[in-house]
Amino acid sequence: MVAIPSRHRSLALLAGVLLAQILLLAVQIKRDSRGRLIRVWAISTVTPFERVGAWSVGKVRGVWHHYFALQGTSRENETLRTENDALKLSIAQLQTKAAEADRLGALLNFKTLNEKVAMVGARVIGASAGTASRTIEIDRGERDGIRRNQPVITPDGAVGKVIEAYRDSAQVLLLTDKDSGIGAMLVNSRIQSPVGGTGEPMLTMKYVANDDTVKAGEKIVTSGMDKIFPRDVPVGTVLEVKQGNTFKQIRVTPAANLDRLEEVFVLLTQAPLEFQKEAEAESAPAQSVPAETPVTAPPAAVKP
């Protein structure tokens, strides 16, 4: 029998592995299967490390701050100037903590405002391992009642939806992902049209006819037509409007800061939500939205 040279063996292996993966792709497309088992194994392997990583980052941040504070304290005994420096550092620390408290306070206010709406708070522990998708991973999963297609929000507005729920974690498809879409409507004109991602930080509003009137600065909220998000959750603000072939090209700034997510809420029901009115009042004049235009859900809709 003729022995296969080593180089040909590796070429044959390359061809075999590539063919297997092409078949794997074909199977996923044909059956709309997404290889859940392999994903569960991979997620289960990596999630504990991500949790440890998130915990370690928190600790390192704490040690970093305390290190500088202690350095300032030791110098404090020597001269008044160093005492002043240490106090300045303390102020900086307090400002950091105050900012964190503000952020957590906003989350608490939102939760209190919507106490009758079932929702789960979650911490973001990871993101997609590549630029091919825009997803985040959260530290709550099926054990906490998280299921696929549940909406994910922050007090600022819509974030995305749960695309996969595991035992202790879940993956969330952000609005900015190319495959993402959300039923939305313009607040002023009440024109309904889906808003989707492009893989970039901005969103696009599709299928608004050229003869409809849309102005930059107009607010966009969810329409509830996608049967995922409740109505009137802020989605974003129209940034730019251009005439297209058939439909307008509308670029939208997301309401939630999708690049800097640390905590989110997963809605367990489609009950309507109420968003804080102060934030609206502050942003409305700058973005030329008429003051009488309500962005929040009507009070009657908040009742359980």
Binding site: Q21, I22, L24, L25, Q28, I29, R34, G35, I38, R39, W41, A42, I43, T45, V46, G126, S128, A129, G130, A132, S133, T135, I163, E164, Q171, L173, D177, K178, D179
Partner: peptide, 15 residues
């Protein structure tokens, strides 16, 4: 394949 698995279901295994 591990990177595919961690990139969410919108990225097919094999990309």
């Amino acid at each position: 394949l591990l990177q595919d698995s961690l990139s969410g279901p919108t990225v097919p295994l094999g990309l």
